[in-house]
């Protein structure tokens, strides 16, 4: 009998720096599987954000660039405009994409830049110690909203998939999660579609992944999965928001 399960070639052997229970590892693996399946490893350039995934380049076996906080979509634009043959993706957290870098992601999506964005929404600034993000839920406790997020002062959590879907420019936009195996399968499908649209030079593609941050949420990994399912999924609804004609 041949091998039925193996580590993707696009994934390296390095030990992870991510915290126990963090979902970045699953999402990295899904991206690596898709890169393998599409056979594009030799022409892929990943862009690491500023956030917990700044070290993502350690875990993949293709070219990688680190960006500045929020600027990955501009960097990806720069690469794709001068090297349309490369397969480029940004991998961004919610502080990175929905706060400091919201201008860059909106304009890249609106120009229809032909790269892919994997948007990991864990509702907090993980790397800097769990501060409030634009995606933090109402009343959610974080290190800078110790009394719970007061939406009267800070507004409602940003729904990036919906916001980007409102643009007229054709795009592929989906929100999935990796909280349970059944969701992982769907997330993989969305990521594969997103990269496939890029390979076909069709449109900008964006997959938001509802994620967890057990350490900064102050919950165990298992409690985090449950908290996210109960509290995040009703607000951050899963599914495909936009498909190019």
């Amino acid at each position: 009998m041949g091998k039925t399960f193996k580590k993707p070639e696009a994934l390296s052997d390095k030990h992870t720096h991510y915290c126990p229970g963090c979902t970045h590892g699953i999402i990295h693996r899904l991206v690596a599987e898709v890169i393998d399946e599409l056979g594009v490893r030799g022409r892929t350039v990943g862009i690491a954000p500023v956030g917990c995934a700044v070290l993502a380049h350690n875990y993949f076996t293709f070219d990688f660039q680190e960006s500045a906080h929020g600027r990955s979509p501009a960097m990806a634009t720069g690469i794709k405009r001068v090297r349309p043959d490369l397969i480029v993706f940004t991998y961004q957290g919610d502080g990175d994409l929905a706060s400091i870098g919201i201008g860059e992601i909106i304009h890249s999506a609106n120009r229809g830049e032909k790269f892919t964005t994997i948007f990991v929404n864990n509702t907090v600034y993980g790397m800097t110690g769990g501060q409030m993000a634009p995606t933090t839920m109402p009343n959610q406790h974080t290190s800078t909203s110790p009394y719970g997020r007061d939406v009267k002062n800070t507004g409602m959590p940003l729904k990036m998939a919906e916001l980007l879907s409102a643009l007229e420019t054709p795009a592929y936009i989906a929100r999935e999660t990796v909280l349970k195996p059944k969701y992982v399968v769907k997330a993989k499908k969305a990521i594969k579609k997103a990269f496939t649209y890029q390979v076909e030079n069709k449109c900008f593609s964006f997959v938001e992944i509802v994620s967890t941050c057990p350490v900064n949420w102050g919950l165990t990994p298992l409690e985090s999965l449950k908290w996210a399912e109960d509290n995040l999924l009703p607000y951050y609804k899963l599914g495909e928001y936009k498909i190019p004609e």
Partner: peptide, 24 residues
């Protein structure tokens, strides 16, 4: 050649960062 009007000078600086980093 290629010209792109970026959305801000911040974005433009990262566009040339990306472009030169990939060897162009």
């Amino acid at each position: 050649g290629m010209f792109l009007q970026g959305e801000s000078e911040v974005a433009v600086s990262y566009m040339i960062f990306g472009a030169t980093a990939c060897g162009s």
